[in-house]
Design a binder for these strands. Structure first.
Lengths: 252, 252
DNA sequence: CGGTAGAGATTGTTGAACAATTCCACAAGA
DNA sequence: TCTTGTGGAATTGTTCAACAATCTCTACCG
């Protein structure tokens, strides 16, 4: 269970062109090693490289990434706070396995947040092109059978919806919720049909938003989320316990 | 911590003879040093021992608390993630000074969350006694002139309102928002009159909830939050920049 | 008066070390 | 056979010391 080699890609946030005043504050763009490591791990978890239930060894990952244990532990703290990892004292950190209660709670918050954001729409919003773009990407992914991109596009679509609230904190919250949902999808056996089913409804919501009909879009979105939650909970319950059992039996 | 060895069953599969011990999980779990240190600092910040803008020296606090720099840094990460501290690379951590934009955003989220939680009320909720208790504590604090307790009671009142949503994540979010608001109040010169003014409106909201009138309570609460935000923003803007200036001039 | 070089202080990160705890295999006993 | 100690190995928790990177402030120089 060793030998994992992880390529550390230091993201270059260099902005081409004239630097503006915001970039003046270099404190934002500069990131500590721990944060960069957390970014790498976050991406790996999102793409399923580290599967839910798996343990992240300090020694192995520290060697693979070329950072000390102390720095790595700082990164673990970050991700634990985002509910992507679960920290068990003296046992280490594990990729979280969301429970069914977690799924229900995630959707409870999504209904509150996303519906409120959409409800406030009274005219075609400035970000409409970006929203439409996400829907189009989803369509294209479904057409070419790229199920992974389909899920990603769907996540982006909902993040754009939440961004209609204009709140930095809402954006951050939704970002974390969707990251958690990715863990759920990694446990699901067939996320493909799950996402596929809701593509036409994305268009319905999009049309209501373009028409500036906030309440109408909210109603559609609420139904959308209720249905998705119900289907997800039904299909997820046994998968989650199976994942836990698989992890427990991994020893052999 | 000697003698008894307890086997904790995580998944309660209805095994006869093994009662639901999963609930006792919290009693078994311990906290790491970093988490305990974070708890101490969190309390100190909330009560104003560390004032907004102040720097938290790794050396000084590490010595005072008897923990190593590494452990202390883990605690700092935790609090930075809660927006209580601001981390500036190579400069250290500072107690955060919320900007006016932060105040606006906090209230934007509060309106969404708390109003949604209250809206769902259709009958006198089970937690009504707890909500009423918070209002009573606030009245008592105002009567005896204990302004600090008044602010605390008010925070608790709103946390109970948010808890009506029944969502663990909403509770956590609101807890963080109110912790951030404490920083705001520490900058304000006269929080006393601010809280005092809204006491009668707490009772109005409480009555609507007791009557099971969710939408009515929502309307009152929304107006409450709008007024509070407006007043707060008006009185806060110059205070915040003054605090920043005071910190900048602290060097002399 | 303004800019700058450098000394001192603080943080960023590492590596080693040791204690505490968990894990695992195996033996002992009912 | 099943349960119950028991020991060693592996892993995490925490501290410490050291050095590099960066910031801050002072004093000097043009």
């Amino acid at each position: 269970m060793v030998g994992t080699i992880v390529h550390v890609v230091i993201e270059d946030n260099g902005v081409p062109g004239v630097p503006d005043l915001a970039a003046d504050r270099g404190l934002v763009s500069r990131k500590s090693t721990a944060e960069r490591v957390a970014g790498v791990l976050r991406k790996r978890i999102a793409e399923g490289y580290f599967l839910p239930g798996g343990r992240l060894s300090e020694q192995d990952i520290g060697n693979a990434l070329g950072v000390s244990r102390n720095t790595l532990r700082e990164a673990f703290r970050l991700l634990t706070h985002e509910r992507l990892l679960a920290h068990e004292l003296n046992r280490g950190v594990f990729v979280r396995i969301p429970s069914v209660e977690d799924v229900v709670d995630i959707y409870r918050v999504r209904k509150i947040i996303e519906c409120a954001a959409v409800r406030g729409v009274t005219a075609k919003p400035a970000s409409f092109p970006r929203i439409k773009e996400k829907v189009d990407i989803g369509d294209e992914a479904a057409r070419t059978g790229n199920w992974k991109d389909l899920g990603t596009a769907n996540v982006w679509f909902h993040q754009e919806l939440a961004a209609l609230s204009g709140s930095e904190r809402v954006n951050e919250l939704v970002g974390r919720l969707t990251a958690e949902l990715r863990l759920v999808f990694h446990i699901m056996a067939e996320p493909r049909r799950f996402h596929e089913r809701y593509l036409p409804r994305n268009h319905e919501i999009l049309d209501s938003i373009e028409a500036g009909d906030g309440p109408g879009a909210e109603q559609l979105l609420m139904k959308y989320l209720e249905d998705a939650e119900e289907q997800l909970v039904g299909a997820y319950a046994d998968r989650a316990v199976a994942a836990r059992a698989a992890v427990a039996a991994e020893q052999s």
